[in-house]
Amino acid sequence: MIARVLAIAGAEFRIQRRNRWLASATALMTLFALALTFAGSAPTGSLGVDLLTVAVASMTTLAVYLAPFLALMIAFDAVAGEAERGTLGLTLTYPLSRGEMLLGKFAAHLAVLAIAICLGLGAAGLAAWLAGGAGAESARALARLIATAILLGASFLALGYAASALSGSGAGAAGLAVGLWLVLVVLYDLGLLGALVVDGGGGFTRHVFPWLLALNPADAFRLWNVAGSQEVALVSGMAGAGAALPVWAAPLSLLLWPVLAFVLARAAFARVEP
């Protein structure tokens, strides 16, 4: 089984490495992260935290949007595109289960995504350290940011496969992926915000809202990073929401999402007729 998963992963990794779009997206993320690191140097003095702490707070916001987007763009073609081009049928006539095929792609895509995230966010950390604005505490925050961003990306990779398997064509899968991104990353938060305003600090705000936040992988990612570092929380002003939750809530959500989404994708893939 491992040999077959690795065979798929090896080929898929090469395909992604030759994808020019992915290389430019990584470069763009690196630029963004660097810009945020140095643009954020203004408030450091007033808050009494170092340069990297501020950078981690702003990069958390950057990663919330970019990691899911990057992941979906890599993943949406995985099933629908192959079915459309006719490569899926031949591969599936080999003694390889659909789960193994999906796992192989997942491994390769996750590796590519991890490299992109490490490069992008790591460059900012390196720059801050060189500029003398990094300490042990903020370095730990950056490491946490990178690890959780990879988990967030993993969730959206698997969601992307599900979208890919559910839609009949590559174009349909791309549309579904963009929709997923919009709903989970943008509209979900807007909806919660609206509910908060309507509720006006009532029971919903205190008891339901934090759990709804933890339920969404993008918000769980934010919560985990904020709860992990008081200084980051201070800078991002998100300390309130996280405080109402047990510490395990956000990490559990973010760890479960990739697994559950993968199970969903596997089930959707089972119904695809190449």
Partner: peptide, 21 residues
Amino acid sequence: VAFHRSLTGREQLTMFARLAG
């Protein structure tokens, strides 16, 4: 017959060889 455009023939055939054991 369709294969991945960005793989070389050798890479593609190697993938199939490994799948076939």
